[in-house]
Amino acid sequence: MNRRKFLEQTAIVTCSLVCMPSLLYARQKEEIIFGHNNKRYRIDTKWGALDFNRYPVKDCHEMVQDSKGRIILLTNETKNNVIIYDKKGKLIKTWGNEYPGAHGLTLFNENGEEVLFICDNNRHQVIKTSLDGRVLLTLDYPKETGEYSKAEEFIPTETAIAPNGDIYVADGYGKDFIIQYNYQGKYIRHWGGRGSEDKHLKNAHGICYDNRDENNPVLMVTSREQQAFKRYTPDGNYIDTLHLPGAWVCRPVIHGDYLYAAVLQSQSRLWQQSGFVTILDKNNKVVSNLAGSAPSYNNNRPDEMYQTIKAFQYPHDVCIDDEENLYVAQWNSGHVYPYKLTPVV
């Protein structure tokens, strides 16, 4: 055997030895696809990872996409409350040091200019800013309602903005009222609050303006401890309840015909990092649970849902981009950066 032949054969044997365990591994560990029906995804847990020393996060609370395609993350880490990524997870910029209780993030296109609404739990305020962080409007605690005697009682978690600019604030960690303002921040009305009737809320953690039916837009409001969304007319009249047994749903996110929501945890395993993501179709029927139980119904009501795969700890929000990718931000999950899930075609 000449030297060349010897080296060739050695290379083949060496490579094979290196590859063999991998091949065995590959055969054992098939690819994991999350979800059901036509909403199935691959996961990339490294998508949003940054240098923690330079760009730390505490709780990654919410995410939105702007018209430039950028993904905007809100965290309660005051070194950089807002972290802006491109869709590949590359850092574009950060801003914000004054939102210690940064929680809710909503984007609204106001006559061609995009603005953000930040709910701050610690400041007991809602702050409207430009996309680069310039403060445009601040809403203090809603004493006009007659329901509040001091700022500390108001702990807003989410906003939704109607097409006419009306601002709906969900006081999800406070008194569970929904407070409606006009675009200038002038109080219009309020409803919800705690109580035993269907129209009442318990942990009104999220809200969105659901205009999937253009002729009948509704407000979809989270009642998280009741494991439900409740629907109201835009002027606050209760319509009905979407029961989602087992699922501590966070805010509803409308994208196309679908409603997406992070589920903080499963009712069956409270405070044990038992979250997943749920997706409802245009008829508000659960069609997919990512890292959760396969959806099934009994008498038109979903069976109890629960986490089946420990892919997430406490998912807190989802964002769906213009290419149907899904991003997941998590609360109290070891300072973890957002994950990206790519649809399986």
Partner: peptide, 17 residues
């Protein structure tokens, strides 16, 4: 083989709940 197996290894392995 190397590329294929690297791709598969790169994905996370999760625990069932």
């Amino acid at each position: 083989f190397t590329c294929n197996s690297c791709y598969l290894i790169a994905q996370d392995t999760f625990r069932l709940a």
